[in-house]
Design a protein around this nucleic acid. Structure first.
Lengths: 264, 264
DNA sequence: CCTTATCGAG
DNA sequence: CTCGATAAGG
């Protein structure tokens, strides 16, 4: 028996909006710890890792670990039927091949339940080792989204280079080149507007903008984004989910032929 | 000679927006009582009935009964040329095969007239008998619209079931099922937010969501909608038009094979 | 937060 | 051309 009651239902709606374009089907894993998902994108290039901790739910009952295979498109359709300030409850009976989403309007006058078929999905659950990163950049999520969108109108890939002074996003395309530099800046009115760079070692890595632009769909979940970079490691783009956990996107850097001199 | 002056011209614009997708051509009937229309939708499944009483017009002159066949698409095009707070006057000379729409801006700085050709349309004017309904539900029109839209992302038909406690809207589709229950609720701040159920007998009927979603295009005309249901009778979905009349949509229930036991 | 208007995609 | 999604206003 599973029953998870999330008062701020819009969180789940936003989570789905941010991964449904990347992943078609995935297993949601439910344990005493929380509600989580780990999945490769459909072209097996990027990885999504979601955690919603049990403490973030108003009510969290999960009698035994459960892995529920869902079609994220269908799940998104159903969640779109929830109002933005509805309370969402996820329910599943043991051994059932369906999951039920219940939406309660704030006034309790309207109660909806949507039942969705579950599916069997093979998935290797990858252990993701904690790693030391050469550089960690924290910046406003909207600014990162804007930069990725802007650069993708010029080129297909972005080179992210971090030095003590700042982080540079560069691209190159048929019509020209573009560089956007964000200086470290901690002297802002609001902490979420800061750009903070923790750097042990300069790093410069190339990524496909197509994926970056997918990741930025999670921007509504958090006002800041954290980008963790190490040479030869996948970049981690993380959006914290207030009081609950995070959504993290992993993407391997491109090894560019004309950047051999970046290798040490 | 016909001359109808409607100060709140936006009413007529909204009326046209709410029926132009359902009906292509129709006769507008003009008498001392008012300006009215009755028409089957193009697939002869639903029926629209509009009444704008003469008292609702600032000036209403209709020397003799007149039936004017109009192409509603063309009429809508012309009405779109009226500002939302323009005064609209409908004019027709006796025996003329045209109708003129005159739009006056509130400041009288701009006066437009659009002349449209009339057409001959056969139409059996159906007498719609007043009926006793098993159940009448009044609820916010926006809520009804939202429910029909949400359910149509899951299935094609909606089962509307009324009990004393509330009204339930249900559907079923490939990806799962959905039920939305609205409880009777009269204790709200504003009367137009209430959900009121008058029920003589429980009723459960099935309708095509495609038509329901067409009907809800009339939501801007009224903050509440009234749904009148009886087994074996067409449902009536009514939007009152303040001070003037109503627009009513009639739709026959589907007789579902697997619901034979609903028949008494 | 809901409604409406404008824009972009299929 | 219709629709959905987004952005602005109430």
């Amino acid at each position: 028996m599973l029953e998870l009651r999330l008062v701020q239902g819009s969180l789940l709606k936003k989570v789905m909006e941010s991964i449904k374009d990347l992943v078609n089907d995935a297993n949601f894993d439910c344990s005493a710890t929380g509600f989580s998902l780990q999945a490769m994108d459909s072209s097996h290039v990027a990885l999504v890792s979601l955690l919603l901790r049990s403490e973030g739910f108003e009510h969290y009952r999960c009698d035994r670990n459960l892995s529920m295979g869902m079609n994220l498109g269908n799940m998104t359709k159903m969640l779109k039927c929830a109002g933005n300030d509805d309370i969402i409850t996820i329910k599943a009976d043991d051994g059932s091949d369906t999951v039920t989403f219940m939406f309660e309007s704030p006034t309790q006058d309207k109660i909806a339940d949507f039942e969705m078929k579950l599916m069997d999905i093979d998935s290797e659950h990858l252990g993701i080792p904690e790693a030391e990163y050469h550089a960690i950049v924290r910046m406003p999520s909207s600014e990162f989204a804007r930069i990725c969108k802007d650069l993708s109108s010029i080129g297909d890939t972005v080179v992210i280079s971090v030095t003590k002074e700042g982080v540079k996003f560069s691209t190159r395309g048929d019509i020209g080149t573009a560089n956007v530099v964000c200086r470290q800046n901690t002297t802002v009115d609001k902490p979420e507007e800061a750009t903070i760079i923790e750097m042990n070692e300069p790093v410069s890595l190339t990524f496909a903008l197509r994926y970056m632009n997918s990741f930025t769909k999670a921007s509504p979940l958090s006002s800041t984004v954290t980008i963790s970079l190490s040479s030869e490691l996948p970049v981690v783009v993380e959006y914290k989910i207030a009081e609950m956990g995070y959504i993290r996107f992993y993407l391997a850097p491109k090894i560019e032929e004309d950047e051999e001199d970046n290798k040490s």
